[in-house]
Design a protein around this nucleic acid. Structure first.
Length: 233
DNA sequence: TGTCGAGTCCCTAAGCGTTC
DNA sequence: GAACGCTTAGGGACTCGACA
């Protein structure tokens, strides 16, 4: 697979102190404490560790209440992207440039496709053929195995139900787990934390929903999709 | 008709409060 | 106890009105 990077602006190093809310974190930046935007509402277990190195992007905007986004954490030399918007961007880049072999040949790509039952991240079409694609952000890795979710997710199960419905209606449907770090060797659902999601994913796969996982190469300058990872359901 | 800006809706997931 | 709704911050998509 060829590379499809999302580039970062110049990042500022900081020290992560604590999470202050769903979307806020307190860091030490250039000798003072600073509240920054954390673009991820997940639990981020084992990633947001006090004292760890954080990397920030300066942001300007009228509606903003913070002046920086927390984009990367560095733990034991491993760079981890904590921006939950990145997987969609990476997939879009890869789809637009025909860089994902399982999804080659689709002529039209619609983001955030609206359905009566909900919204799906991508709808790919080729004539009358349709493929629904849902992207999931993964940040948790244990002993080389990427795990999703890092907190019980009823929304995740809802998305799987929706994909199953699309398969029943004759469309193709897939869920793509994007592991936003470079130290994962394989992917599994996090059955010990959310057995319901793990069961739903296995059932979805049995009923025809395709399951893919990709690792990422995370650098200070950019993040790009890496090789496809084995999925162990 | 085309462009621009303002406003609205929806998405992310956890946590809290309310209702049954 | 379960189910549901709301809130949180920020951004993208979309709609609508104003104007050239």
């Amino acid at each position: 697979m060829k590379e499809a990077p999302v580039r970062f602006p110049q990042l500022k190093p900081a020290i992560f102190l604590e999470r202050q809310g769903l979307f806020r974190a307190l860091v030490e930046l250039e000798g003072h404490k600073e509240e920054v935007y954390l673009p991820n509402s997940g639990r981020l277990e084992g990633v947001l560790l006090p004292g760890a190195r954080a990397l920030l992007a300066e942001k300007k905007g009228q509606r903003r209440k913070t002046s920086h986004d927390l984009l990367l954490m560095e733990l034991s030399g491993v760079m981890i992207s904590v921006d939950s918007r990145v997987p969609n961007e990476l997939l879009l880049e890869s789809l637009l440039n025909s860089r994902l072999p399982p999804f080659w040949g689709y002529r039209r790509i619609i983001r955030e496709a609206r359905l009566p039952e909900g919204r799906i991240d991508f709808l790919l079409t080729r004539g009358s053929e349709r493929c629904f694609l849902e992207a999931k952000s993964v940040t948790l890795v244990s002993k080389g195995r990427a795990l999703f979710p890092d907190a019980p997710t009823s929304r995740g199960r809802k998305h799987l139900e929706l994909l199953k419905q699309m398969v029943k209606q004759g469309s193709r449907a897939a869920v793509v787990f994007v592991v936003q770090r470079g130290d994962a060797l394989c992917f599994s659902p996090n059955g010990s934390l959310d057995p319901g999601f793990a069961l739903a994913l296995r059932q979805a796969a049995e009923e025809g929903v395709e399951v893919y996982a990709y690792g990422c190469q995370v650098l200070l300058e950019e993040i790009k999709l890496a090789e496809e990872l084995p999925v162990l359901l």
